[in-house]
Design a protein around this nucleic acid. Structure first.
Lengths: 224, 224
DNA sequence: CAATAATAATAGTATTACTATCATTAAACT
DNA sequence: AGTTTAATGATAGTAATACTATTATTATTG
């Protein structure tokens, strides 16, 4: 049934967690509160002791859900990519023009449309995605983790948008590079606009980022 | 005198260090060996105890040069940007065509031409720049650090390349965004090619990255 | 109501990220 | 050459972090 596509439920590799945080109220609190706490104090300062105090549980209990804070970050970023996947379906259903699909995708990647989903603060989540998500793979054991498929959700988003690009121009050879350049670029520009403004060119236009990256992408795709 | 421009000496903000590592042999060893050690074990696993053992000195001594390992990373990345600045001068002197200047700049940002400079392994340095450099600003105290001008060297490179772009098209409004998109993009694609190949499109052509980002940049700049 | 699972409470360990102190060596200046 | 000054080495110690283990208590399920 068509509307089944619209039902959101995070599809996250079980290797990321020890006990599924979606399986209990405490687990949900671990996720939603870790997003808020990481937003407040940053991932480096964040630890399970502080998180347990914020939730009103103990360090040992959180360790039953996640091996360490790094795996929790991986879970949070995976959750974000699940959410993006859901938004992509939502915004691109019945859209026939692949140029429009691409623009919608970039739009989804640039701003969180809603403020809250269940107990998750999407603004805070997007903010930590911009500043912390790359730390989930810029680590020494990335190859080991990758073997377990923990980057599945990110890869899937890249594959989906890559496919849109190939519909626009089937001969384009650099669709994955282009997608990751745009995604990571958006995150960086958002961060720079807030902290290092001389590294970006923020304007009054609320859509300046969407327009910049859509232009960049579409001209690259249609070239030659 | 013209050749003064070609003399390389790192111009790094003194707020980054407690004692200038260029002022002693031990200081030089701290820099060159930290590059190799971070390359070997990654920045998370890296600490001053391990570094001191590798150098044959003590933890306390290294702490007299740098407040903590994060400031050392900032020094190393700043050193890299100094090196890039030097390379840009070297490759773009007497080049009149700004399109060529831009291509040369992207070339410099994509591959380290030499293998070794003094006691510094440039291959290892470039590798950790790709995987660790963004951690020097993706931190909670970024605003405090920025006040002290510690990101000066990165900003300068962005400004220099941004100026080249404005020579190509003085009406282009997004030169800084474009430069940081290209720089961070290069780092990411290098990393993905090595660890998460499905997120990029590496080819046999050794210049594929240079060509991709030059094409991307030049078409964006010349648009409208 | 019994059995099972989940969590709380508490304690403990190894490592990390430093700081402090003092002895020793090297450099620089009469 | 001898004295001051600075840099480093050696050692020790502390607070916090990143866990692990144990047992008691509560909630859930059969």
């Amino acid at each position: 049934m068509e509307f089944e596509l619209f039902k959101f439920s995070a599809n996250i590799r079980s290797d990321i967690f020890l006990k599924d945080p979606e399986s209990s109220q405490l687990g949900s609190a671990i996720i939603s509160q870790s997003i808020n706490l990481i937003y407040d104090i940053g991932f480096e300062e964040f630890n399970f002791r502080k998180l347990s105090q914020q939730i009103g549980t103990t360090e040992a209990t959180i360790y039953r859900y996640f091996e360490n804070k790094h795996m929790l970050l991986l879970y949070v970023t995976s959750w974000y990519w699940c959410w993006v996947e859901y938004q992509l379906v939502l915004h691109n259903t019945n859209i026939v023009d692949y140029n429009v699909r691409l623009k919608n995708a970039i739009k989804v990647l640039t701003v969180p449309h809603d403020h809250q989903y269940a107990d998750i603060n999407l603004q805070n989540l997007f903010n930590i995605i911009c500043s912390e998500s790359c730390k989930s793979y810029l680590i020494k054991n990335v190859d080991d983790l990758n073997k377990y498929g923990v980057y599945y959700n990110y890869k899937k988003i890249v594959a989906i948008i890559s496919d849109i690009i190939l519909k626009v121009n089937p001969a384009y050879n650099y669709s994955h590079m282009l997608v990751t350049t745009v995604i990571e670029g958006i995150h960086h520009q958002k961060y720079f606009a807030e902290h290092l403004p001389s590294l970006t060119d923020k304007t009054d236009d609320p859509d300046y980022l969407i327009n910049f990256y859509y232009q960049l992408a579409i001209t690259a795709i249609n070239l030659k």
